[in-house]
Computed example of a mutant assay.
Amino acid sequence: MRDVIDQANEIAQLELDHLIAERKTFQGESATHCIECNEPIPEKRRQLIKGCQLCADCQQLNEMQRSVSRKQR
């Protein structure tokens, strides 16, 4: 049986794969600091994910919350 961390990692990887595949559609500049926690967003993340506004940790939490929300429907 998979645990919560395995599920979270799978969700994060799926979202990252999707973002990379669709990165041509992102417009605008990435934020230098996360809009949720105000931590700096690493340069490499800002370059790879155009228009990103969240750090990796906040992005993962956001995805987990959306996943739980979808499952509750």
Rank of each mutant, 00 (worst) to 15 (best):
E63Y: 13
K50G: 05
Q60M: 15
N62E: 06
N62V: 00
A56F: 10
E36V: 15
L48Q: 08
A56K: 14
Q53H: 07
I41S: 08
M64F: 11
C52F: 04
D57E: 12
Q27E: 12
N62C: 00
Q53F: 06
I49H: 02
H33Q: 06
N38G: 04
C52Y: 01
L48F: 04
K50F: 06
C55L: 03
E43V: 15
I35Q: 06
R46A: 00
C52G: 03
P42F: 12
A56W: 12
E43A: 14
L61C: 06
S30Y: 08
F26N: 05
S30L: 04
P40H: 07
Q27L: 11
Q27S: 12
Q60H: 13
R46T: 08
E36Q: 14
K50S: 05
A56Q: 13
Q27N: 11
I35T: 06
S30P: 13
Q59I: 02
L54Y: 15
C34V: 09
G28E: 00
C58K: 01
L48T: 11
C34N: 13
N62W: 08
I35S: 01
L61N: 07
F26H: 08
G51A: 01
G51E: 01
E63Q: 13
T32M: 07
C58E: 02
E39Q: 08
G28R: 01
D57K: 06
M64C: 12
K44S: 09
N38A: 10
C58N: 03
I41M: 03
C52Q: 06
G28Y: 02
G28I: 02
E36D: 14
I41E: 05
M64H: 05
Q47K: 12
C34W: 09
E43R: 15
N38E: 08
A56S: 14
R45M: 09
Q59W: 08
Q60F: 12
C34H: 07
